[in-house]
Design a protein around this nucleic acid. Structure first.
Length: 582
RNA sequence: CGGGAUGUAGCUCAGCUUGGCUAGAGCGCCUGGUUUGGGACCAGGAAGUCGCAGGUUCAAAUCCUGUCAUCCCGACCA
C-alpha cells in the first residue's frame, strides 16, 4: 500500500477526550475514530491489526478442533426469558420491539450467544455419540454498557470470539477445556501479549472451572494478584491468601477503652481524618443479612470485604448488605457507628482483626467511636476467617512467596458452564444407558478488540505504538526520502514491488514530505521495520534498516536490501515463534 | 445512577471573571516561493450559526434557566 493512496490520518496533538495511552495512540496513529461513547470506527490500519489477530485466533481454534460457525446478532427475546438472563442482564441487554406486519416482535442484540448455540445444539444433538463438539464464531456483541470507558477497551459494541463445547461427560469437558486453555496461551503469545492466566470465579462447577487471561496494565479495569515465586495468579474476587488464624489473646499493651465524640463522622476515611489515625488502626464492622439473619463482619479498616468469601465462610446461600433499619436494630446506632462491643448479632472476623491492638471501632451509639478496643477483653472471638480481598504483601496460598497486586485487562475467559443452559433450554441427549441427560457445556471467549487495546496499552514508547511483527498493520514501512525526485521514487517503487512479491506486508511512504515528518509518523503507527530509502544513503549505494524496537539503524547495500529485509523478518518471526508454548 | 470537568475552525487551546468594534492563536489545509535525515521557513488564503433551545439586555461566546453531548472518579459489568 502506498501511504499517499491510503487513509491514515495521523495527528500530532493528543485529542482532549483521550486519557489512556492506548486510546491516545490509536487515535493519533489513525487506527480508530470515535462515533459516540463506546462505539468506534476502525480505519484501515486498525482493521488490518484486527484481521491479523482474527487470523491467529482462527488458526489456533481450528487446530484445537473447534468448528467455525456464524450466528445472528439479532435474537428473539424469549431465548433470554427461558434462561432467566433477560432479568440477569437487565439494562445491559439491548432489546426493542419492531413491527412485522400486524405483529410486534421483541428482539435483542446478542450480548453473547449461549442461548442461540444451545438452541442450535439442542435440535442437533440427540446422542452421546455426537459429542464432543466444539463450535466458535467471531462476531459483534452488543452490550449497553452503563459506562463505556478508555476508548476501545470498554465499548457497547465489540468483536468477540466465542466458542462453545458440548459434552456427555465431565472428563470430555475437562479435556476440551485444557485444549482451549492451551490454544488461548498460544493465541495471546502469538499476538505478542504478555498475558497472565488467572483463576477466576468458577460458578456452578467449582474447582478450577474458570480462568481469565489478563494483560497486566496500569489502566486495566480488573485487579489481579500473583506470586512470582509460586506462579499463583487469580483475580481479586477469587484470590485466596496464605494467612492463618492468629492466636486470639488480649494484648499485654491493651489500654483502657475510651469513648470518643465523633459527630456526623461515620466513614473510615472521615474518622481517620478527625482522629488523625491510620485506617489500619481501625476495625470496621459491616452488617450483612446472611440467609436473612443479621451478622457482623469485622475487617481491618484498610481492607475490602469479599462477599464470596464471606458467603462461603458462613456457609450461607444469600448475602446482602443490611438495610439502615436492620443496622439500627442490631447496633442501636445509625449507619457508620457499628462496632463489635456489645453488638446484638453473631460476629465473624477476618484473620487480621485480632492483630489490631488498641483498635478504634464504632461505639454502637450515634456520633461515638471507641478507642483501645481489644479482642478477648472487649469482645469475644473464637476463630477467624479469610473474609477480605487479597492485598499486596499477603502470603501466597501456596505456602511461600508473597502476593503482588496489579491491574489487568481481561482479554480472554475460559469457563466450564456445566448444564446451566442445557437444563433451562432442555438440550438433552441419550446416554449409553438410554437415559436423557442435559448436555454438559463449556464456553470460551476472547475480546478481539481488547487484544489491540492491550497491545497498545503495554507496547508503546514516547514516540508511539510498537506492534509485534505478527499483528502489525504492516511489517515493513519504506520511508522514501526525497520522494519528489523521480529517480528515487521509482527506485523505491521497485524495492517495494520486490518485497511485496516476496509476500511481505509493506507500506510505501511515498508522500512528498520532509524526512522528520515521515520518521515521526512511522514511529507513531508502530511499524516493526523501517527502511529509509533515498537521501544521502542512496547516493552512497545503501539503504538503512531500522527496527522500531532498536535505537540504531543498519546500513545495507541497496543491492542486498531485499534479501537482508527478508532474512531479518524471518529471524524475527523465528525468535517470536520460539516463545510460543506448545 | 451519584460526584467532578469540558463543549469556541479538522486538532490543541485563548477570549467568559467585569456583556460592547469585523471572535483570536498554534498545528493542519489551499496557493506561490525558499528548503529537505527526526513533526522547516516566508508571503498570501480558505475555514467557526462560539453544542442546542429559551430568557435577561439597546447589545450575549461572555449573565440566567433548561437541555444535549463527551471525558474522568465511583456504583454496575453472563
Amino acid at each position: 500500500m502506498r501511504w499517499s493512496q491510503s487513509f491514515i490520518p495521523t495527528m500530532k496533538e493528543v485529542p482532549s477526550d483521550a486519557e489512556v495511552p492506548s486510546h491516545q495512540l490509536m487515535l493519533r496513529g489513525g487506527f480508530i475514530r470515535q462515533l459516540m461513547a463506546g462505539a468506534y470506527t476502525y480505519l484501515p490500519l486498525g482493521v488490518r491489526v484486527l484481521k491479523k489477530a482474527e487470523a491467529i485466533i482462527r488458526q489456533e481454534m481450528d487446530a484445537a478442533g473447534a468448528l467455525e460457525i456464524f450466528m445472528p446478532a439479532l435474537q428473539p427475546i424469549d431465548l433470554f426469558e427461558r434462561t432467566g438472563r433477560k432479568e440477569a442482564f437487565g439494562n445491559v441487554l439491548i432489546n426493542f420491539n419492531i413491527r412485522r406486519g400486524d405483529r410486534t416482535v421483541h428482539l435483542a442484540l446478542g450480548p453473547t450467544h449461549e442461548e442461540v448455540v444451545t438452541d442450535l445444539m439442542s435440535r442437533h444433538i440427540s446422542s452421546h455419540r455426537q459429542m464432543p463438539l466444539t463450535v466458535y464464531q467471531i462476531q459483534t456483541k452488543f452490550r449497553n454498557e452503563e459506562r463505556p470507558r478508555f476508548g476501545i477497551l470498554r465499548t457497547s459494541e465489540f468483536l468477540m470470539k466465542d466458542a462453545y463445547s458440548f459434552h456427555s461427560s465431565l472428563e470430555s469437558l475437562n479435556d476440551v477445556y485444557q485444549k482451549m486453555y492451551r490454544a488461548y496461551c498460544r493465541i495471546f503469545s502469538r499476538c505478542g501479549l504478555d498475558y497472565l492466566p488467572v483463576e477466576a470465579e468458577s460458578g456452578p462447577i467449582g474447582g478450577d472451572a474458570s480462568h481469565e487471561f489478563m494483560i497486566p496494565a496500569a489502566n486495566g479495569e480488573d485487579r489481579i494478584v500473583f506470586c512470582k515465586k509460586t506462579n499463583y495468579a487469580a483475580n481479586l474476587e477469587r484470590a485466596e491468601t496464605g494467612r492463618k488464624p492468629p492466636v486470639i489473646a488480649t494484648s499485654a499493651d491493651a489500654k483502657p477503652v475510651a469513648k470518643l465524640h465523633t459527630p456526623n463522622v461515620g466513614s473510615i476515611e472521615t474518622v481517620c481524618k478527625l482522629l488523625k489515625c491510620k485506617p489500619e488502626k481501625m476495625v470496621k464492622t459491616l452488617i450483612f443479612l446472611a440467609d436473612e439473619k443479621p451478622v457482623a463482619v469485622l475487617l481491618r479498616g484498610d481492607h475490602e470485604a469479599n462477599e464470596g468469601k464471606i458467603r462461603r465462610a458462613l456457609g450461607v446461600k444469600s448475602l446482602e448488605m443490611a438495610s439502615p433499619e436492620t443496622i439500627l436494630a442490631v447496633t442501636s446506632a445509625p449507619v457508620g457507628f457499628a462496632g463489635p462491643v456489645g453488638i446484638k448479632c453473631p460476629i465473624f472476623a477476618d484473620h487480621d482483626v485480632p492483630l489490631v491492638v488498641n483498635a478504634i471501632t464504632g461505639a454502637n451509639e450515634g456520633d461515638y467511636h471507641l478507642a483501645n478496643v481489644n479482642v478477648g477483653r472487649d469482645y469475644p472471638l473464637e476463630t477467624t476467617y479469610d473474609l477480605r480481598n487479597a492485598a499486596a504483601g499477603d502470603p501466597s496460598p501456596r505456602g511461600e512467596g508473597t502476593l503482588e497486586l496489579v491491574h489487568g485487562i481481561e482479554v480472554g475467559h475460559v469457563f466450564k458452564l456445566g448444564t446451566k443452559y442445557s437444563t433451562s433450554m432442555e438440550a438433552l441427549y441419550d446416554d449409553e444407558t438410554e437415559n436423557r441427560q442435559p448436555i454438559i457445556m463449556g464456553c470460551y471467549g476472547i475480546g478481539v478488540n481488547r487484544i489491540l487495546a492491550g497491545l497498545a496499552e503495554t507496547k508503546h514508547d514516547e514516540n508511539g505504538l510498537i506492534w509485534p511483527l505478527a499483528v502489525a498493520p504492516y511489517e515493513v514501512i519504506i520511508s522514501v526520502i526525497g520522494a519528489n525526485e523521480t529517480d528515487t521514487l521509482s527506485a523505491a517503487e521497485t524495492f517495494y514491488g520486490q518485497l511485496q512479491a516476496a509476500g511481505v506486508d509493506v507500506l510505501l511512504d511515498d508522500r512528498d514530505l520532509r524526512p522528520g515528518v515521515k520518521f515521526k509518523d512511522a514511529d507513531l503507527i508502530g511499524i516493526p521495520l523501517r527502511v529509509n530509502f533515498g537521501g544521502k544513503g542512496l547516493k552512497e549505494g545503501v539503504v538503512e534498516l531500522k527496527w522500531r524496537t532498536s535505537a540504531e539503524s543498519q546500513r545495507v547495500a541497496t543491492a542486498d536490501a531485499v534479501k537482508t529485509v527478508l532474512e531479518q523478518l524471518t529471524a524475527r518471526r523465528q525468535a517470536d515463534a520460539a516463545t510460543i508454548p506448545q
